[in-house]
Simulated assay, not measured.
Amino acid sequence: MHGPTSSGWLLVALCAATGTYCLLRMRSGVEEQRRAAGGEALMGFGMAAMAVPAAVFTPPAWAWPAYAVLFGAAGLRALWSARSERHHLHHLVGDAAMVYMALVMAGTSAHGHAHGSSGIPLLTGLLLLYFTGYVLLTGVRLLPVAAVARGGTAGGGAADGWGDRPELARACRLSMGIAMLAMLLTM
């Protein structure tokens, strides 16, 4: 991505840590958690790889089309899974955003770094609006007032492992949403 090197490395660290946590969530005893965590781990590691500053490492020309194919396949899987679980629609949008960014990066590496147009492209703007809304909604869901209003405890049941805690999964999704916003802003 195009941007300052220090913020690029912070983005890499955030996405890699999120991907690692999602891999750990795949060990959950809850099948729904495992399925969602796999897609989120792929997204986290893919975003980390994409966020490596261009000043440090320039991927080969074939890398961007490979990203597009990988996340296109993940998007098809998310579309198929969305039939039974609504949350996979968000994965579909995230995968589509990754395909879009990979294709844009393939175009900029083939034609230099100048886009030749001014302003934000329509698709980038729509994705920015979507992920801004997603980040705000996910952030509100993390507020501790919601746990008190339901009359439950913030930690969940005693049988839940730390990987099955919904607030940690939401925090993971929130950090990836913020990272996606940062990546879209640097395009």
Rank of each mutant, 00 (worst) to 15 (best):
P53Q: 07
P144F: 06
C15D: 03
M43G: 08
Q33M: 13
G107N: 05
E31D: 13
V145Y: 11
G151H: 00
S7P: 09
R25Y: 07
A96Q: 11
G119M: 04
G3T: 00
Y130E: 05
P121E: 15
Y67D: 04
Q33S: 14
T153W: 10
A74F: 13
V69L: 10
C15R: 08
G161T: 14
L70T: 11
P60E: 02
M26R: 10
A96R: 07
G161S: 13
R165V: 09
R35F: 09
A102K: 00
G29K: 00
G163Y: 13
A37G: 02
A159D: 14
L10R: 09
H113K: 14
M26D: 02
T138L: 09
L103S: 02
G39H: 10
G161Q: 12
L184V: 04
G156E: 04
L123Y: 12
R141S: 15
C22G: 04
S84E: 15
W80I: 14
A54S: 12
P59M: 02
T18D: 12
R34M: 08
P53S: 06
L103W: 01
L126Y: 13
S84R: 15
L123F: 12
G8H: 01
G155R: 14
W9Y: 11
P166F: 12
G156N: 04
G3H: 07
A36F: 07
A41L: 02
R86S: 13
R35H: 13
L123K: 11
V99Y: 04
A41G: 05
G161E: 10
V30K: 10
L92H: 05
M47E: 05
H91I: 04
G29T: 01
R141E: 07
Y130H: 11
Y21Q: 09
A158Y: 09
G19V: 00
A54K: 13
Y134I: 11
